[in-house]
């Protein structure tokens, strides 16, 4: 019977393994193997989520986290994209930016957190900056490599038909690198969410990360897990949406040959 299940398509297998985990979790608590105090249980988390939806707690935290996430990501896209474009056009700009990108790549972004707390204080501004810092690197790197590495054959063909600079950018480089730009955005979305939640854990007055650390300190596992579940769901929705967009934009890349 096991073999028959394993021959099923992947989504079904995933669904089954997920259900098994939930059942074992629930049973372990219900039959008293582990205390609910330590790991809560699926049913308790579900009831807690319903409670938080009804009393508006979830909406309040979710809106704060989403707001910080969107503003941080927007700055990352604007500034990372702009710097990436400038660097792709001018080697000088690229070399000027190189050391900073290097530092950024080789150090854990969260290490910058205390510095921004000192400058901007605990709360919204610092959290947005952390989201920005987490997200900006893939946006910059993918914009730079996408635009800069446009197939020179395509550029030459366009020039032979009299393409001007803006034609080359809008009609060749930009569409040619669209799949790489979207891939950068997908990475940035995941990282911006990481940045927001991490910063909220350490110092905030509202938000999903704040909620987790607040209930965590009070050892209220169920409430903490409710926020964790929402964060996971957010991450899955964002990544899946961008993966779908990526597949659509890059459809011409699949198939044999070019």
């Amino acid at each position: 019977m096991m073999a028959a299940i394993l021959r099923r398509p992947a989504p079904l297998c995933a669904l089954i393994s997920f259900a098994v985990i939930l059942a074992v979790w629930q049973a372990a608590v219900d039959f008293g193997f582990v205390k609910a105090f330590f790991i809560s249980s699926p049913s308790r988390v579900a009831f807690e989520l319903v409670r938080q939806v009804k009393n508006g707690e979830l909406a309040a935290n979710l809106s704060v986290t989403l707001y910080e996430f969107i503003i941080g990501l927007a700055f990352a896209v604007l500034i990372g994209g702009l710097l990436g474009l400038l660097a792709s056009w001018s080697e000088t700009v690229q070399h000027i930016l190189d050391p900073f990108i290097w530092f950024k790549y080789s150090s854990p972004t969260i290490a910058f957190y205390p510095m921004f707390v000192a400058w901007l204080g605990l709360g919204e501004a610092t959290i947005i900056v952390m989201a920005f810092l987490f997200a900006v690197t893939p946006i910059y790197a993918n914009t730079l490599s996408g635009i800069k590495n446009t197939d020179p054959d395509l550029i030459r063909a366009a020039i032979s038909f009299g393409a001007r600079r803006h034609d080359l950018f809008f009609k060749v480089s930009l569409p040619a690198s669209a799949p790489i730009l979207i891939a950068g955005l997908r990475l940035a979305v995941g990282r911006a969410l990481t940045g927001v939640v991490a910063a909220e854990l350490f110092g905030a007055a509202a938000g999903l990360g704040y909620s987790m650390s607040y209930y965590g300190q009070k050892l209220r596992t169920t409430e903490m897990m409710a926020s964790l579940i929402v964060i996971i769901i957010l991450g899955v929705i964002f990544t899946q949406a961008l993966a779908a967009l990526e597949a659509r934009v890059g459809a011409w890349r699949t198939g044999p040959g070019r």
Partner: peptide
């Protein structure tokens, strides 16, 4: 420089794949 009085046919790879 290139001009509309001339047009070029390249080897294979110069079509826009998208």
């Amino acid at each position: 420089k290139p001009g509309p009085d001339r047009a070029m046919v390249f080897q294979d790879a110069s079509l826009l794949p998208w």
